[in-house]
Design a binder for these strands. Sequence first.
DNA 1: TTCGACAATATTATGAACAATCCGTGCGTG
DNA 2: CACGCACGGATTGTTCATAATATTGTCGAA
Lengths: 213, 213
Amino acid sequence: MTAGSPQEETLTDRVRSAILDGDFVPNQRLVEADVCEQFGAARAAVRETFKELAGEGLVEILRNKGARVRAISREEAVEITEVRMVLEGLSAAKAAERVTPEQATRLREIVGDMREAVAVNDVDRYSELNAALHAEIRAIAGHRTSAAIIERLGAQVVRHKFRLARQPGRAAVSLPQHELIVAAIVARDPEAAQTAMQQHLRSVTKALEAGPT
Amino acid sequence: MTAGSPQEETLTDRVRSAILDGDFVPNQRLVEADVCEQFGAARAAVRETFKELAGEGLVEILRNKGARVRAISREEAVEITEVRMVLEGLSAAKAAERVTPEQATRLREIVGDMREAVAVNDVDRYSELNAALHAEIRAIAGHRTSAAIIERLGAQVVRHKFRLARQPGRAAVSLPQHELIVAAIVARDPEAAQTAMQQHLRSVTKALEAGPT
DNA sequence: TTCGACAATATTATGAACAATCCGTGCGTG
DNA sequence: CACGCACGGATTGTTCATAATATTGTCGAA
């Protein structure tokens, strides 16, 4: 995050990427021997990796039954999103306390781009900017604990997330909310920032619950 | 949490307990061979346990330098508490949506006991009831994701926590806040519950930052 | 045909041995 | 006397072999 040590990519990272990229699908069994061969690693290393990823919630381990890619239910995805949103609210409040003029400018830029993306109906770009905005807010907040949790949870719902961003008219709803959040941060008003982010939360979870089955 | 499977206590649980109980102090090196002998386990198992606990933030692993009990700085403890509190806020809101009359009674009971504990200046009992109240709210909320994170973070700050509860006059400040939270939940008002919990948060973090060095 | 016990197989769990790496120590040299 | 350097002990990282366990398939009897 802060200092990117270029240190060699660990096995855990590679397996995690494989899961996130969809090379392993949810509920797929992860047989140690197979994964060993596939990544050219030893069993022990694979084993440790599974435990580590289990801690991150990406795989689940059943005693004497091995590991499998954890499938995340709709309800769980909603819960995760709820948690992420309150943490983003906290980040927004912190960001409002610490934002510098340069950072404020950057935030305004992103929102401007979002507005434009909505105007031309570019959902991909909007989704991208959405992520960028939230990441920027986290960075400004400088709150490592919440940032770490947010990112970990985000990894768990990659497979669910896309559905939301693509709901028709979704961007039109969330854009003004984002504008409000940024305005509050730029105005250095933590409470308003958090409140704005919270309303954003309610809107998002409502959309999720009303979404496709 | 919900269904306690009596399944035998795993090595990870035992090591975690050891850390939480203070058998291993922060920054203490955890030499694999020693831990092996102490718990009568194989190195591979110990190794996996370390990775797992590292994921939980209780130990940190340095490449080729082994594991040690992670020491949590004051700033980090504050961050963790902030995160816990917003998550408790979320729980409070959810609890307000789902609370049953029986559960409402239980909450009122706890607050009543807290009031009494304050009256007789019993800080231990107050601290205990405080934990019970928050646990009850989490249970009512039925929000497993946030509950899991809250508990994990709680484990990380056990060594810091006690300081806060014992600040003189602390209970007198937090009691009315707790009363407000419970009132909002019982009234089935999610927004008020969350707001009340949030104010509780501000109060707590302020106390933490102003606390002893 | 269907149910249950039993054996075969696949897979994980554990244990022991080996190799790579780090850290402190003592020696030698400028 | 200070600095650098090589060496040795300690510890982790890796690999392979073995035991324990669960799953699956098969056979026989009701």
